[in-house]
Design a protein around this nucleic acid. Structure first.
Ligand code: MG
Length: 310
DNA sequence: GCGACAG
DNA sequence: ATCTTGTCGC
């Protein structure tokens, strides 16, 4: 979308002789979780006129030492490789579109529409989607598997560009556009779609799998390799064992010991599926740590990228 | 210094 | 997620 534009609009506003922090700019844009993303983005190449040297850490540290020299020349006190008395030099009066706050409102609205009832009778086919990246180039892959025979029914690849960065809890806005495009090109719509990301296991109960389910009107399951939030009720020990993932007093997902590895996979319903069905189907599809649909999609996406880039 | 927040 | 070489184990 227009994340970079919004970011540069913030940095532009910091006047000579003042500074801001990655966290304050993230808050100005609408959510402090974006601070790390903003830090990374400001390390990249920007228009020479943009005063990225005026953005420092909350401890007053600059990304490059020459930025400190520039700040000193602009009248900002520097001591010990840091901005001295940071609080006295912080620019606070940002004019902002608050795009992340707006996206968060959209998420809350969507979250109220998520259904945790099975929206299918029997599951004959399951789809898996994943996206690989090279800079702002995206490479998506989708597979449709016959659950009984575990045979490939259809495969699809698609490359494109991304404009939105990865921001934790806003993954949809980076990855969903490619997912929607590739899904719409399928000849066979799967009974259930498995996505490499969370379903309701999300602070607003609307991870990318739930979001995708709503926008594509298909039952979805979210599966991740790392836990976004919540605590395990117990510690699964044997293959096939699982534990609830509890957050704010709610069971939002299941941690599944899907292989010999000590690392779990984290399953949550996306949309039009129950917790039980999401778990049952995930267990059935785990021949390796990662369930087969997303595992194959991940391999295909990476393969496509390597073929197209090198 | 530690903990940490999917992909 | 990506950046990266060889290496250990099934
Ligand atoms: Mg992925």
């Amino acid at each position: 979308m227009r994340f970079r534009k919004e970011l540069s609009a913030m940095v532009e506003q910091i006047p000579e002789g003042m500074v801001s922090t990655y966290g304050d700019i993230a808050r100005a844009i609408g959510d402090v979780v974006a601070s790390r993303t903003i830090y990374s983005l400001l390390q990249e190449e920007w228009d020479g006129g943009l005063p990225i040297h005026r953005v420092v850490t909350s401890r007053g540290e600059a990304a490059l030492s020459r930025y400190l020299q520039m700040l000193k020349e602009e009248g900002v006190p520097v001591e010990n490789r840091k901005v001295r008395n940071l609080k006295d030099h912080l620019f606070k009066d940002f004019k902002s579109e608050r795009i992340l706050a707006k996206l968060r409102e959209k998420q809350e609205e969507l979250a109220s529409k998520v259904s945790l009832e099975d929206g299918f009778k029997r599951v004959r086919t399951v789809g898996g989607i994943d996206v690989a990246y090279k800079g702002d180039s995206a490479f998506a892959a989708c597979v449709i598997l016959d659950v009984e025979k575990m045979k490939l029914v259809e495969e699809r690849r698609l490359s494109g560009k991304v404009t939105f960065p990865y921001v934790s809890t806003y993954l949809s806005y980076r990855e969903l556009p490619m997912i929607k495009k590739i899904f719409k090109r399928l000849k066979t719509k799967p009974d259930v779609l498995m996505i490499d990301g969370n379903g309701i296991l999300h602070p607003r109960r609307i991870g990318i799998a739930s979001h995708a389910g709503l926008e594509l009107n298909v039952p979805t399951i979210g599966v991740t390799k790392r836990l976004l939030l919540g605590k395990l009720g117990k510690t699964p020990k044997k293959i096939g064992d699982f534990s609830s993932i509890i957050h704010e007093g709610c069971v939002l997902g299941m941690a599944l010991k899907s292989s010999k590895s000590d690392r779990y996979v984290f399953v949550s319903p996306g949309h039009m599926i129950s917790m039980k069905s999401a778990l049952d189907l995930s267990r059935k599809l785990c021949f390796h740590r990662i369930p087969e649909p997303t595992r194959r999609a991940h391999r295909m996406a990476t393969e496509l990228r390597n073929k197209r880039t090198g």
